[in-house]
């Protein structure tokens, strides 16, 4: 473990908690893409299958359980409890356009052709693009509540911090995983225009307005 990965995990945890609290407190999931949340739940489910078979540390197990529980709780809030506030008309990204390439790529570019490894690879590639329906929805509605933009900033920062973690591990531990690195860079790059708007607007107290 290193400070970059720890900060990354904390940022990731923060994002998930911010989202849960926002929906629970405002009793509304307006502006939130249920599709992205479905993709995140799929990501954690296929990545943490080794939750019971491969014990890494208490921290690792704890965080996996929290991520799984929080992502399914968020889906429950969006599609069940506060379903009336789910903005279906703006959450229209065709996720099959994500699932197909991710599935093909995970079958072609992986470390080992075993079910567990393919599912892990699938989850890595899926996570890289899972935020697209949410970013698409924000661009479609033309704006995002500030709490939603804080959620996106924390979520985007987490994988950016993981990149620093991978640089650290390459030099200090001679460890690297090209699949995780490639997907992590893509994932972080997808947030770039949002990061620019967040830093130039939201941090100055303005609303996040995207050119529709």
């Amino acid at each position: 473990m290193n400070i970059f990965r720890l900060l990354g995990d904390v940022s990731h945890l923060l994002a998930i908690i911010i989202l849960l609290l926002k929906i629970w407190k405002t009793r509304s999931c307006a502006g939130i893409s249920g599709k992205s949340q479905l993709l995140f739940a799929l990501t954690y489910t296929t990545r943490y299958l080794d939750l019971v078979t491969n014990f890494v540390s208490v921290y690792n197990t704890f965080m996996k359980v929290v991520f799984l529980a929080a992502s399914y709780a968020t889906i429950w809030l969006i599609y069940m409890k506060f379903r009336a506030t789910y903005d279906q008309n703006h959450d229209t990204f065709r996720i099959e356009f994500l699932l197909l390439p991710v599935t093909i790529l995970s079958l072609v570019a992986n470390h080992e052709f075993t079910l567990i490894e393919i599912l892990w690879t699938w989850s890595i590639y899926l996570e890289a693009v899972a935020i697209l329906p949410q970013l698409f929805m924000v661009s479609k509605t033309g704006e995002a509540e500030s709490i939603t933009s804080h959620y996106l900033f924390a979520l985007g920062s987490y994988r950016g911090l993981y990149i620093l973690n991978w640089i650290y591990r390459y030099y200090m531990e001679s460890y690297y995983d090209l699949i995780a690195i490639f997907a992590g860079i893509l994932q972080t790059v997808l947030y770039c225009d949002f990061f620019y708007l967040y830093i130039t607007k939201v941090l100055r107290g303005q609303r996040l307005q995207l050119p529709a």
């Binding site: 965080m63 460890y175 699949i179």
Partner: peptide, 10 residues
């Protein structure tokens, strides 16, 4: 190829 370290990252 990647080092065969166990998958210790989240």
């Amino acid at each position: 190829e990647a080092a065969e370290a166990p998958k210790d990252e989240l």
